[in-house]
Write a protein that binds this DNA or RNA. Structure first.
Lengths: 95, 95
DNA sequence: ACAAAAGATAACAAATAAGTTATCATAAAG
DNA sequence: CTTTATGATAACTTATTTGTTATCTTTTGT
């Protein structure tokens, strides 16, 4: 039985987290990070971004603290005023 | 008053659809198209993809006919077995 | 010390995505 | 013609997101 001490250990354990699931979680973390980073870089408060995106401040707060899994249109509404969008790209499950 | 005859006319009318909203709708259409296309290219039925992704067949059918706005994790679950994922990229609202 | 702004959160309602189960119509295959 | 596979859909439940409104705490700036 492999020792699991950290979250990284857990995430990298093939028997517990599949490459697909890891990819998905990584993307979600990256996405939230990017939104927070871009928002702060532009000097926007959550309320500013709420006004610009049409998504309400409590929803932004929930999302930024990863207590919800947003719908795709919510994500795009938030990214747009931050100067980002999403694209679909090929993905090789790295073995 | 500008004449609106087709959906394209409507979508391209700056006074009705903002660049951000157009971008968002374009992405969602592209996404659905890609999922259908990739699924069929691989010879997968909706039931096949349901088994591979963990998303149920009725949910896939609703999504493919654009009668729902999926959550981001649902999108990623569907894209993974099709060999795709999402990335965040800069977006210039074209004037 | 005070005021203002920020992020977090609580509590509830409204909306909707997703699961569940079953069935239907259609098309393809035998 | 019958069977089989497929996509669509119906009906209902469950789970979750989002909106709404309000408040709280903390931080920042004066």
């Amino acid at each position: 039985m492999k020792e699991i001490n950290t979250l990284a250990d857990y995430m990298n354990d093939e028997n517990r987290v599949s490459p697909e699931e890891r990819q998905r979680i990584n993307f979600e973390v990256e996405l939230i990070g990017k939104i927070i980073e871009a928002r702060e870089q532009r000097g926007y408060s959550q309320r500013d971004l709420a006004r610009l995106s049409g998504v309400k401040q409590p929803a932004i707060a929930r999302l930024e603290s990863m207590r919800s899994t947003p719908q795709i249109d919510t994500v795009l509404k938030l990214l747009a005023p931050l100067g980002y969008t999403l694209t679909i790209v090929p993905f090789e499950p790295q073995r």
